[in-house]
Structure formats: structure tokens, C-alpha cells
Amino acid sequence: MNLYTTLQKLCTCPSVSGREESIRELLRELISSFVDEVSVDNLGNLIARKKAKNAKAKKVMLCAHMDEIGFLVTFIEDNGMIRVAPVGGISLSAAAYSEVVSEKRVAGVIVPESKTKPKEYAIDKFYVDIGAKDRKSAERKVSIGDFFVVRGGVRRLAGNRICGRPLDDRIGCAILLSLAERLASVETACDIYYVFSVQEEVGCRGALPAAFGISPDVSLCFDVTGTGDTPGADPMACALGKGAAVKIKDSSVICHEEVVATLCSLAETHKIPYQREILLYGGTDTAPMQLSGSGSRAGALSIPCRYIHSAVETCDLGDAEACVSLAEQFVLTLK
């Protein structure tokens, strides 16, 4: 499976937090042939299981979130302009003057009210213009409660780098798909649960019940992380192109020391490029997997990503490939 081609499919499927139906169906289709069973839980998490031979095998949960940040339609003005609320961590300066598309594929643009200075950006000062001439004509296309996202899509940059949205976290989903394909014909000692979680962007809500249901012994999260390799960035050892980022800490979690150590030593042994990641902010599904139920040994493989939550999220495909290889080795060592 080619990561880039997969991403091209995954990134054009508007699926804001809580409304992941369309990406879920696509992922279900893509992963089904690599696993033994696929289910969807009450919140909409997609859970694909590859069974171990031994019924009492240890369980490993591999999780990437399939939702993306976006906007909720809250009000339609008489002039047909649409007021929205943010879903997840929207940066308005990144979103201003972007093309947006609704879950019903209605196109529009998100813009600040005239004369609003960047310093004054607040969601109440923004609206979506779908070109409707008045409220009535807007209401024919959009209802209160509909969701918009900034238009998705991915392009190639120099070398092995790609740019677009929402690489956060369709790149994690692509890694899981690729991993599932590689392990499809391998007999593993542990039960593998590939989980495509919902509602990560609104506070890691989906992975918690998913982990509760699975009750894994070990868990690994696949998500993007910030980098320190751009002009003006805060100091951070993590950089694009230096390999899979083995998470040590972000503001929601401190990863299990042995999981970190195992990942690092496997990377050394198998000559897989890797780096250690300490993120000063941010949270991931690692935290709910660590503490759900009676807890699991939790770690994370992160994909370094520049300009997170913008329309030009930038990653290096080599880092994603390293994540696939390192995750594969990790799963194979689990007994």
C-alpha cells in the first residue's frame, strides 16, 4: 500500500469530530481484507481486530484518530451568511480566507468580518459565505447543526515531503492501514486491535470507551507532533525527516518507560530512523488509553508535522514509513 495514494483518498473525506461516518466507511473498506473482524462501537470508533491463535493472548491496541477539526453551523443571518462555532483547536488566523466544504459537500469560504484586525480574531467575528443571496436560499443548502471543514487534500513538496490537510491524523490512519497490510499474513502472538478513533480533536473522547471495551495490555497511539525545525519555533529536538518520533511526553501523558525503551532499542537494532519526542503542549489518545479501565502500558509513535491545524500541514513520508516499520517490529516482539 502506498502511503501517499492512501492519503490522497483519506484527506478528501470531510469528517469532523462526532461526524466521522464517511471516513469510517472508507477505512472499513480499506482495512477489511487485512483483519478477522471489524466493528463499530456506540460512539462510532472503528475497531478492526486481527486475532491471535491463542485465545488468552495479550491484547495490543493501535490507535489513530480519524476525525478532524472543523466548524459547526450555529446560526444563519438574514443575509444568508452563516455563523459557526469551532470544533476542536481551530486557529482562526490559519483558517481565515480558506475554502470550506460542508459534510453535504456544500462549498463556501470562511472569512472575518470586514475591518477585523488579526489581533481581534474571534469566532464571533467570522462567518461562512456560501454565496447564498439570503437566509432562505442558504437554508436550502445548509441547516443549523451541519458541519464544515477547511477543504482537504494533499500535495507533494520537494523530496519525500507532502503538504495538505488533514494530515492530522489521516497520516496516522494511513500508517495503521499499511501496518495492517504488512501483518495480514503474519501469525502474531498477540491480539491486534486497530482502532480508528472518533472525537480526538475535541478532547480525546473516543479512545477512552474504545480502550475500555478492548482493555488492552499494551497500547500505541499514532498521531502527529510538533517540530522545532522551522524559523522562530520553540526549541524542540524533533524535526521532519529524522524518523519516527518515539513519544516520551506531551502535556497529557508521560509514556510508559519500558515501551519507550523497547521502541528505541528496536529502532537501533533494525536501523529504523527514530527520534525521541518531548512535546511541551498538546494531548493525544495515548492518555485515555493509558488510564482507561485498569490501565495499559501506553506509548506513542508520532509523525513530525509542521503547521499543525492549518491547511498546509507538512510531513515527511519517510517518517511515516519509519513508523510503520517500527510499529511492525514492536508488535512482533509482543508475546
Binding site: S252, I254, A287, Q290, L291, S292, G293, S294, G295
Partner: peptide, 17 residues
Amino acid sequence: SFEETSRLGGASAGAFG
């Protein structure tokens, strides 16, 4: 574990078990 760094703390997982 984790009282200083997590809202739930390791205590919630421990107590669940």
C-alpha cells in the same frame, strides 16, 4: 502514580482494578 500530571491520575486505573 501520575497525580501531579494527570487529571484522572493513576489512582483511577488502580481503583478500577
